[in-house]
Amino acid sequence: MSFDFAVILAKAPQILAGLGVTILIWVAGTLLAAILGFLVATARRYGGRLADLVLSVPVEVIRGTPFLVQIFLLYFGGPYIGLRLDPIAAGLLGLTIYGAAYYAEIFRAGFQSVPPGHSEAADCVGLTRMQTILHVQLPEMALLVLPPSMNMAVILLKETALLSLITVPEMTMTVQAIGSQQYAFVESIVVLALVYWALVELANFLGRLAERRLSTYSA
């Protein structure tokens, strides 16, 4: 058995287009997930016991079920309740909701790490709740939430591969299609694995860099 990687590399422009979709969905999904997760954590913290209880349900359900089942439910089940999304929109929405549940837990731990005396002090000097959250609590928890946040971002990058199963034209789907056209299944998957590996290691590297940057600002 000989392997011919040239047929795959000849399709580099298509692969790069798929990579572009992967990165776009990943970055957008991660940012939206982090924002939504932060809002959920804030609502659970300051919205009273009822909000905390009500929001804990989706968070636990999403964290307890496979991402694959969630996107199947959204993409194939959605149209039955009037939610008809194209694959990219469904993929982005699915990734955002999935990530938000985990980010909500990360920020929940973040809020718990800030000494209550600090927000009380902010309250005393006349800062509003919003100002306290944004200017006191968020910077204080930054160093604690950064490593798990970067970790989650990397997990989300790998989860985007599953979107190929709901026909999002991201990298996995693109490369698999090339593999079947060129009858080069092994070569295509090897290239795919190497690109993901490089991307994940790059993301890990950037995460460590950000951590180091941030730690120089904290006492």
């Binding site: 058995m1 092994v186 998957i189 590996w197």
Partner: peptide, 24 residues
């Protein structure tokens, strides 16, 4: 450890599924 943590499980499964039969 770096490889298996760095590649999506879906891609790992596809790799094993395609690679092993190709090498007999």
């Amino acid at each position: 450890i770096s490889f298996f943590r760095g590649v999506p499980l879906l891609v790992q499964l596809l790799l094993i599924f395609n690679l092993l039969p190709a090498i007999g």
